[in-house]
Each structure stands twice: as C-alpha cells, then as structure tokens.
Amino acid sequence: MTDEDRTLSPRRLEAFSDGVFAIAATLLVLDLSVENLGAITSNDQLWHALGSISGSLLSFVISFLLLCMLWMVHARQFEHIVRVDNTVLWLNSLRLLGVVLIPFTTSLNADFSGLLLGRLVLPLNFLFVLVLGWALWGYVSTRSRGLLDEMSDAAVRSSGRRALGAVIAGLVVVLLAPFIGSWAFLAFAVSPLTSRRS
C-alpha cells in the first residue's frame, strides 16, 4: 500500500470543519436575548439593563473574534495541506471538539466570572484548540509525510513559529485570567507582534 492509498484529499475535512466553525460562531449569540433585559419602559432602564448584561456581551464579542482567529489559522493551514491521513483527521477532529465547546465555555465565563473556574474554562478551552492546531501543523509539516504543497521551508518554519506564538499567548491568557478575567484575551492582540519578531 502506497502513501497515496493511505491519504485523502482534504476537501471533505475542510467542508466539515468550516461547517463546525460556522455553527459554533452562530451558537455564541444564543446567550444574548432581549428576554434577559426584563421589562423596559424608558431609555434609562434600557441602558441600565444593557449594562447589566455587559459581561455576556463582552464574552460574546471576545469569543466571536477569537473563534474567527481560530478559523483563519485553520484556513491558512489547509491552503497548504494537499493530502490528509488518519492522524490529521483525528487531530483536526479533536480541535473541532474544542471549537464546539466554545459557546458553552463562553456562557460559563459570562455567568460565573466571579469564580476562579468560571474565569478559567474559556481560556483553557482556547488553549486546547491552539495546542491541537500547533500539533497538527507540526505533524503535517514533516516533509517526509508528503502532506504539504511546495511551500518553502522558511514559510513552513514561519507558520510553525506563529502557531507556537499563539500557544504561548494562550498560556499567558490562562495565567492572567484568574486576575483580570476576560481582559486577559488582549494577550492575543500582541501575539502576532511577538511571533513576527521571533
């Protein structure tokens, strides 16, 4: 059996993954509902009610933007992956497991931000997804496996450094979240800067 017989085109994996990312992003908004605002009869009451759900709004915005970032990483990786094997299928499936948990951990983060575990579940969820993305790239970028296109060695190393930079930023978020909550996700804003310098 040749390597070609043990691998598949990535088309179906990409379609499935895109669907999972799209559904997870859509599910995020379900926690936001006008029913949570109560009876509103004035502008002042509406502003006050919106302020009372500001934690949920912040968690939604952060999770949506970071989910988009995760999808962009996935899309960039699969622009260069021309074949997939069982290991890639499993690594990607585990990564998607983390992705579909993001709406749930976002809700936990918003509703239980006063508790240590409530502040940690979402950062740990993102870290799980980032580690699996980094592991997947490390696996497919081994040239002897023949899973990548003709990407240059420098580009492969650069992508690996960016993936590692995201994992490091994820670790920083996990370490900061107990102290500053969702604001810890700002570490991802500087992650591209630090990975470019390395």
Rank of each mutant, 00 (worst) to 15 (best):
Thr2Lys: 13
Asp3Asn: 14
Glu4Ser: 09
Ser9His: 14
Ser9Asp: 15
Ala15Cys: 00
Phe21Arg: 02
Ile23Asp: 04
Thr26Trp: 01
Val29Trp: 10
Leu30Pro: 01
Asp31Pro: 07
Asn36Lys: 15
Asn36Cys: 05
Leu37Arg: 08
Gly38Lys: 12
Ile40Asn: 07
Ser42Tyr: 05
Gln45Met: 15
Trp47Tyr: 09
Ala49Asn: 05
Gly51Phe: 13
Ser52Ala: 15
Ile53Tyr: 10
Ser54Gln: 15
Ser56Tyr: 01
Ser56Met: 13
Ser59Thr: 04
Ser59Pro: 05
Phe60Gly: 08
Val61Cys: 10
Ile62Phe: 13
Cys68Val: 15
Met69Ala: 14
Leu70Pro: 11
Trp71Ala: 02
His74Tyr: 10
Gln77Pro: 03
Phe78Lys: 01
Ile81Cys: 02
Arg83Tyr: 00
Asn86Thr: 00
Asn86Ser: 01
Asn92Trp: 02
Asn92Met: 01
Leu96Trp: 03
Leu96Cys: 04
Gly98Ser: 06
Gly98Glu: 06
Val99Ser: 04
Ile102Cys: 07
Ser107Met: 13
Phe112Gln: 10
Ser113Val: 00
Gly114Val: 11
Leu117Pro: 01
Val121Asn: 02
Val121Ala: 03
Val121Gln: 00
Val121Glu: 04
Leu122Arg: 09
Leu124Ala: 15
Leu124Phe: 14
Phe126Leu: 14
Phe126Val: 10
Val129Lys: 05
Val129Ala: 12
Leu132Pro: 07
Trp137Tyr: 13
Trp137His: 13
Trp137Cys: 08
Trp137Arg: 08
Thr142Pro: 02
Ser144Glu: 13
Gly146Tyr: 08
Gly146Ser: 08
Gly146Met: 08
Leu147Trp: 01
Asp149Pro: 06
Asp149Gln: 04
Glu150Asp: 13
Glu150Ile: 05
Ala154Val: 15
Arg157Val: 03
Ala163Glu: 05
Ala163Asp: 07
Ile168Tyr: 11
Ala169Asn: 12
Gly170Trp: 01
Val173Asn: 09
Leu176Ala: 12
Leu176Arg: 08
Pro178Met: 02
Ala184Trp: 02
Ala184Tyr: 01
Leu186Lys: 02
Pro192Lys: 07
Ser195Met: 04
Ser195Gly: 00
Ser198Leu: 11
